[in-house]
Amino acid sequence: MSERMHDVVVAGGGPAGLAVALGCAQAGMDVVICEKRPGVLDKACGEGLMPGAVRALAALGVDPPGHAINGITYRQGTLAVHAPFRCGTGRGVRRTELHDALSEAVRRAGVPVSHTPITEVSQHDDHVRAGGLRARYLVAADGLHSPIRDLVGLGSQGTTSTPRWGLRRHFTLPPWEGGVEVTWARRSEAYVTPVAPDTVGVAILSSVRGGFTQQLTAFPDLAARLADAQPASRVRGAGPLRQTTTGRVAGRVLLAGDAAGYVDALTGEGLALSLSTAAELVRCLRAGRPADYERAWVRTSRRSRWLTESLLWARNRPVLGRQIVPAAVRAPWLFAAAVHQLAR
Rank of each mutant, 00 (worst) to 15 (best):
R169P: 00
H170Y: 15
F171S: 13
T172Y: 11
T172F: 10
L173Y: 09
L173Q: 13
P175D: 11
E177P: 08
G179D: 06
G179W: 02
E181P: 07
T183P: 10
T183D: 14
A185M: 13
R186V: 14
S188L: 10
S188H: 11
E189P: 01
A190S: 15
A190Y: 02
Y191K: 04
T193L: 03
V195P: 04
D198L: 03
D198C: 04
I204A: 12
L205V: 15
L205I: 13
S206I: 14
V208H: 07
F212L: 09
Q214M: 06
Q214P: 02
Q215F: 04
Q215K: 09
L216Q: 08
F219K: 03
P220S: 10
D221M: 05
D221Y: 06
L222M: 09
A223F: 08
R225D: 08
R225W: 04
L226C: 10
A229C: 05
Q230E: 12
P231A: 04
S233E: 07
S233R: 07
R234F: 10
G239H: 13
G239L: 11
G239N: 12
P240I: 12
L241Q: 10
R242I: 07
Q243Y: 09
Q243V: 14
T246D: 11
G247P: 05
G247L: 01
V249P: 00
V249M: 00
V249I: 06
V249Q: 00
V249K: 00
G251F: 00
R252Q: 01
V253A: 00
V253P: 00
L254E: 00
L254Q: 01
A256F: 04
G257Q: 03
A259Q: 05
G261L: 13
G261A: 05
G261T: 06
Y262P: 01
V263L: 14
D264R: 09
A265R: 05
A265M: 06
T267D: 01
E269Y: 04
E269I: 07
A272Y: 02
S274A: 15
S276A: 10
A278I: 08
A278F: 03
V282E: 02
V282R: 04
